[in-house]
Simulated assay, not measured.
Amino acid sequence: MNAPRSDARTANTASTLSHDRYCDEIAHQVGLLRAVVTSGADLSVTVPTCPDWSLRRLVRHTGGALRWAELLVRTRAREEVPDEKVPLGEGPETAGDLDAWLAETGDLLVATLREAGPDAEVWSWAGIPTSGFWARRMAHELTVHRADAALAAGLPYEVAPDIAADAIDEWLQIVEFVQRAMPHDGARDLRGPGRSIHLHATDATPELDAEWLVELTEDVVVWRRGHEKATVALRGPLTAVMLAFYRRLPLDQPELEVLGERELLELWLERTTFG
Rank of each mutant, 00 (worst) to 15 (best):
D162A: 08
D97A: 15
A100P: 00
R235N: 04
P183H: 00
P156F: 13
Q29D: 14
R5P: 00
G154P: 09
E255V: 15
G192Q: 10
E84L: 11
E170M: 14
G186A: 15
A187I: 09
V241D: 06
K229Y: 03
R195S: 03
V86M: 06
E263H: 12
E261V: 08
K85F: 06
A77C: 02
P183M: 03
L238R: 08
E121Y: 02
G226R: 10
A111H: 09
A147P: 01
E79M: 02
L213S: 05
T130I: 00
L142S: 01
W212V: 08
E263D: 15
R191I: 12
D148E: 07
T272E: 08
A167N: 13
P92H: 06
A95V: 05
T105W: 00
R21H: 14
D20A: 15
W125G: 09
R9P: 05
G154H: 06
Q173P: 00
E80M: 09
V81N: 04
D7N: 14
D148S: 02
R137N: 01
S54E: 02
E104G: 13
T273Q: 12
L71F: 02
M242C: 12
P129R: 07
E207V: 10
A111G: 08
L58A: 10
A41R: 09
V37I: 15
E84I: 10
I168E: 07
I174L: 15
V220H: 13
E170G: 06
F177K: 12
E70N: 15
E211K: 13
G106I: 03
S54V: 07
L243G: 03
K85N: 13
D107F: 06
T94K: 02
T272G: 01
A150G: 04
G40N: 08
A233K: 04
V221H: 10
T202Y: 07
D52G: 14
V178M: 09
D99I: 01
G63L: 00
V178G: 00
E257K: 13
K85T: 09
L43V: 01
H184M: 10
W268A: 11
L71H: 11
R137A: 04
E211Y: 01
Q173T: 05
A103T: 10
T38S: 14
F274D: 03
D83S: 14
V214M: 07
W53A: 03
H145A: 02
E261R: 14
Q179I: 00
G260N: 06
G186T: 09
W134M: 04
V222R: 15
T13M: 05
H200G: 00
L259Q: 12
V36S: 01
G106Q: 04
R224Q: 13
V175I: 09
T202H: 05
D209E: 15
A41Y: 06
S18D: 01
D203P: 08
D99Y: 01
